[in-house]
Design a binder for these strands. Structure first.
Lengths: 128, 128
DNA sequence: GTAATCAGTATAACAGAGTATACCAACTAT
DNA sequence: ATAGTTGGTATACTCTGTTATACTGATTAC
C-alpha cells in the first residue's frame, strides 16, 4: 500500500532506476550481439590465433561446417572479422579479428573464469 | 601476478593446445548455463533488489510472464535463486539470489560495460 | 585409383526457445 | 460494479538456431 510506495521511492533514491534501466538495456544489447552458441567460441578461437577454416572448426567441439560457415559470414558482414583470400594454389582463406572483435576479450575471459570455477564447484560437491 | 598470469596464458595459447581446449570447454560450459535471452537479465534484476514477480517482469523489457515463470522455475531447480512464500493475505512470493547466482556478477558487469561502449560506438559512427 | 585435405554449399528436417493471448483466484481501490 | 494488482498457468503457435548428411572442385599423397 502506502508503505510499499514509500519503500519504492526509497529504493529509487538509493539505486537510481534510470541507471538501472540503462544497464538492462546495455545487457540485452550485448546478449543480442553475442547471442547463440557459437559466436563467442569462434571469436575466442580466432583471437587465439586460428586463421584457417578447418583450424577454427577443429578448435571448437561440436560445431558443424554449416554453422561455422554461417556465423563467419555473418560476423564478416558485421565487421567482427576480416576474411582474406590468399591466391596461392590452392587458395588459402584467412580469418582475422578486427579491433572491434577484440573488445569482447574481457567478457570471454570472465566466462572462461566462471566455467573453470563451475567445474571445480561440481568436482568438489560430493553429493549428487 | 595478473601480468604473469596473462603472459602464462599467452604462452599457453601459442604452445599448449591442451590449455586452449580446456578454455574452450570452460567457455562453452558457461554459455550453456547462461544461454538464452533471459537468464542474465533475470539474474541482474534479482541481484539489483527486485524480489517480486511483477517487479522482475517490469524490469526486463520484452519478457513475457510465461518466459519469466519458466526461467524462474528452472533457476530455482538449479539453485540459482531461492523462492520464498510469505503467508500474508494475499500471499507474497519473493525471489532472492543465492551466492552461486552472484558468481555471475563479473560476467554481467563486463557485458553491461560492453553494451554501453557499443552504444557510444554506434552514436559516434556517422555513417549508416 | 583411392583417399585425404581444404573451404565451403545444398537440402532437409527437428527441437525447443520464444511469442501471443487468454485465463484463474484472491484481493484492493474508486 | 468496474478496473486494477499479484503470481502465475494453459494453449497454441512461430521461428530460427541447430543438426545431419551429402556433395563440390581443386590439390596432394600413397
Amino acid at each position: 500500500m502506502q508503505d510499499e510506495k514509500r519503500q519504492e521511492m526509497a529504493k529509487g533514491v538509493l539505486s537510481n532506476p534510470r541507471n538501472q534501466r540503462q544497464e538492462v538495456q546495455a545487457l540485452q544489447d550485448t546478449i543480442y550481439v553475442i547471442g547463440g552458441k557459437w559466436r563467442l567460441p569462434i571469436i575466442n578461437s580466432i583471437c587465439n590465433g586460428n586463421k584457417r577454416f578447418r583450424d577454427i572448426e577443429r578448435s571448437i567441439p561440436g560445431i558443424t561446417t554449416r554453422m561455422l560457415s554461417r556465423e563467419l559470414k555473418d560476423m564478416e558482414a558485421n565487421q567482427l572479422i576480416r576474411r582474406t583470400v590468399i591466391p596461392t594454389i590452392p587458395v588459402a582463406v584467412e580469418y582475422t579479428a578486427t579491433e572491434y572483435c577484440q573488445s569482447f576479450g574481457d567478457i570471454i575471459l570472465e566466462m572462461i573464469k566462471w566455467g573453470k570455477q563451475h567445474k571445480e564447484r561440481i568436482i568438489h560437491t560430493t553429493d549428487q
